[in-house]
Amino acid sequence: MTASDSATLDLNGADVFFRTFGSPEHPPLVLVHGLYGDSVTVAPLAERLSDRFRVIAPDALGHGRSARPEGFTLADQGRMLNALVAALGYDAAAMVGISMGSYLTAQAAIDEHARVSRLVLVVSKAHGTTSSSVAYAKRMGFDLAAASPDELLAFMSGAIWSPDTSAQRRAEIMQQIGESTESVVLTPAEQAAVERSLAGFDLRPELHRITVPTLVISGKDDGLNPPSSGEELVRGIPDARFEVYEHSGHMLTFEETDRLVADLESFLLED
């Protein structure tokens, strides 16, 4: 990972750790990771975007080096993101959320759209009784809590990859992810707190409150949040755009990175 700055701020009574990439003179972009990830897991994408944006990548509540309270909600996460934008001195920032991160950024745009200039929801969904990973594991009879990181990755491969991504490319991606020694692994109790924060979430009644330009991106072969979930979001968000990546699953940010970076730059910098 190339050099980045990091800091911790007290936001609404909770410590929030974040990394920054790119020049402070660039327009701000808040980039939010997925379930059980942290700012390290989105660093490769942040680096790619740092030529055009000041990328701010927080560790969500319950993740990484941010506070891990026993009880928090999706609403708390949305307030945290808006407070982060304000604390850094911006009137508004673009927000890009990946998987779970997209639920958080959508919540931020629902709560305080003036803080969100543009919104991109990647491999997203509008509601769920649990996280997508837990729902998939339940369907398949797999014990997430008892699994080692390697076992978890092997199990999830059936839901996250496009058939077009070769075994060699999958191995390269997983090696890239695994090489980082900075990412923080959550304990089972901490994972349970994250799962509780997502239990039964439903953004559908409030999606009409997202009035900023919005792009929804799904992977055709995503077994966790399929294109039908993206379509549901688009139906609820006024004038939202929808793109399906034909050669991606849930690992879209790694499978079609070049296209994603180009699409993000085009959409976020559009006049």
Rank of each mutant, 00 (worst) to 15 (best):
S99E: 02
T257W: 04
S131F: 06
A46C: 07
M95R: 08
L88T: 05
S4Q: 11
P24M: 01
T8S: 15
L49H: 08
L29E: 06
P69R: 10
R65Y: 10
E265R: 14
G13V: 12
S4F: 15
G101H: 03
G223C: 07
P213K: 13
A87G: 00
D222Y: 09
A57L: 10
S218I: 10
S183F: 11
P238C: 12
T257R: 14
G64K: 03
I110E: 02
G219I: 12
R196I: 00
S166I: 14
G219P: 09
P163E: 03
M1L: 14
S39D: 04
S183C: 00
Q168G: 14
R170T: 00
L119Y: 08
S183N: 08
V123W: 02
D150Y: 04
R52A: 11
E232I: 15
E206I: 03
D91P: 00
I110Q: 04
L45V: 12
R204K: 14
V123R: 01
L144S: 01
L61I: 14
D111I: 06
D258S: 10
L81N: 02
H113L: 02
A43R: 05
S228N: 07
L31H: 06
F142S: 04
L45R: 07
D258I: 04
H26C: 15
V32P: 09
H26L: 13
P226K: 13
I237V: 15
A126F: 00
P69F: 12
V185E: 04
I173N: 00
M251I: 00
S183R: 13
R139T: 14
T41W: 08
L252N: 05
P44C: 13
V85A: 05
D38V: 14
V96S: 06
D222E: 03
G230N: 01
D76C: 01
V244N: 09
A135K: 11
E206P: 00
I173S: 00
G141V: 03
S162A: 07
D38A: 10
L88E: 06
R65H: 13
